[in-house]
Simulated assay, not measured.
Amino acid sequence: MRRNTANPGEWFTSSYSSGNGQCVQVRRQEESIGVRDSVHPKRALLDFPKEEWQSFVNSTKDS
């Protein structure tokens, strides 16, 4: 994934997204990372502490 260039508080979609509209979006905030469904952006979102999100991202990277 390319480095995120969105401003804090802005939702963005991964550059790896296929563009079919069925993606997750991520938003950087001061203390946490928000994740939501791009198809239903008004529904519930997940909110992760930054450290937990970074652990998740690191665990998905190719070795």
Rank of each mutant, 00 (worst) to 15 (best):
R3M: 09
R3K: 13
R3A: 08
N4K: 00
A6T: 03
A6L: 06
A6S: 15
A6G: 10
P8W: 00
P8Q: 09
P8Y: 05
G9I: 06
G9E: 12
E10Q: 15
E10H: 12
W11I: 04
W11Y: 13
F12A: 10
T13G: 05
T13V: 15
T13I: 15
S14E: 06
S15W: 02
S15H: 00
S17T: 03
S17Y: 04
G19P: 01
G19D: 07
G19S: 08
N20G: 06
G21T: 10
G21E: 05
Q22V: 05
Q22M: 09
C23R: 06
Q25L: 00
Q25C: 07
Q25Y: 03
Q25G: 14
V26R: 03
R27K: 15
R27W: 06
R27I: 04
R28I: 04
R28N: 13
Q29Y: 01
Q29D: 14
E30M: 01
E30D: 15
S32F: 12
I33Q: 11
I33N: 09
V35M: 13
R36E: 06
D37F: 00
S38D: 13
S38L: 02
V39R: 15
V39Q: 12
P41E: 05
P41W: 02
K42D: 15
K42C: 07
K42I: 07
K42H: 15
R43S: 13
R43N: 14
A44G: 14
A44S: 14
L45A: 11
L46F: 08
D47T: 13
D47L: 12
D47Y: 01
F48Y: 15
F48M: 07
F48E: 06
F48H: 04
P49R: 11
P49M: 05
E51G: 12
E51M: 01
E51C: 06
E51N: 12
E52P: 05
W53C: 09
Q54M: 08
Q54K: 12
Q54H: 12
S55F: 00
S55T: 12
F56V: 02
V57Y: 13
S59E: 01
S59K: 01
S59V: 04
S59H: 07
T60Y: 03
T60H: 04
D62G: 03
S63K: 11
S63Q: 09
